[in-house]
Design a protein around this nucleic acid. Structure first.
Lengths: 153, 153
DNA sequence: AGTTAATAGTACCAACTTGGTACTGATTAC
DNA sequence: GTAATCAGTACCAAGTTGGTACTATTAACT
């Protein structure tokens, strides 16, 4: 299925803890693991990646911890996915051009690039700040053309 | 990463072969595997699933084969994903309510449902018929709010 | 009726990915 | 100097996925 990894899911949850506090607070891995009710080693692992990828700033030593590198409204869901799940690519041909034998003749390749871009932009339009409160439904206006029954879970 | 399975990728490619022909043609698994340059066992496996899920009609015996169960403009990319990849769910909490310990307190859960729905609708807006020709860029109008640099692959 | 061409169904396996843990080293506050 | 904290890496078990093989069933054609 098309699914984010749990790491990314957790990552967004953790970052949202920071985003919910307007003061740009610093939290240690231990504090975060308690707040989010997630195992400490996992939280620690994720925070390290988010720091390496530039979404968090870290401070080492006693009374150290992490804080957001940018303001909550300037970090998007797409940023977090990019940091933890790697480049956003719904099909192989999008992030590994050349690996697919069909590439030269594939009739749908260019469409996949466009679709991928569209979905990416949708997720890049949602910030951590947005995630701290309920989103209003008209998130993205759609051209409701399809008459198919809704089969979303 | 957020990626469709190869099976779904192949599935869309195979169905597009049917969709490109206006006459509602019938193709055998062997013919399709040659057209799409994919291994026959894999093609056969995918076609069986698509038939079971109601996207294809099959005809057994000599000179049998498969054909689309609906017209190309009435089968969407989301349909194919649903058939081959299972229910469309970007996070666990969307398709397996109750399995997540955070569920009762999770601050972002309702947002995930909405985001999931939005992405689903975007993919449900693209038909097989669309995939047979280049899509025009304003696929889905976005409210270009985010100022983040584009990091899509 | 028999032969051939085709799908249906299931079982299987190797390889890759993922969630999760453990351990050692470096840094900083007190 | 000691305790708290992050950094980095290595590791493993379990699940998922891509791909193959085999048998049974169906239908056209002669």
């Amino acid at each position: 299925m098309i699914r984010m990894s749990k790491q990314t899911d957790y990552g967004i949850l953790l970052l949202t803890e920071f985003a919910a506090d307007p003061g740009g607070l610093t939290l240690s891995a231990r504090e975060l693991s308690e707040r989010a009710a997630l195992p400490l080693p996992m939280v620690s692992k994720i925070l390290k990646v988010l720091t390496r990828e530039g979404l968090l700033l870290s401070h080492r030593g006693a009374r150290g911890g992490y804080r957001l590198a940018r303001r909550p409204n300037q970090i998007t869901v797409a940023d977090v996915i990019g940091a933890l799940d790697g480049p956003f690519a719904m099909t192989e041909c999008v992030d590994a051009p050349g690996d697919c034998r069909q590439e030269s003749t594939c009739p749908v390749r260019t469409n996949w690039h466009l679709i991928n871009h569209t979905v990416y932009k949708a997720l890049d339009n949602i910030t951590l700040w947005d995630m701290t409160r309920p989103l209003s439904p008209p998130l993205i206006p759609l051209t409701g053309r399809s008459a198919n029954p809704l089969k979303v879970a």
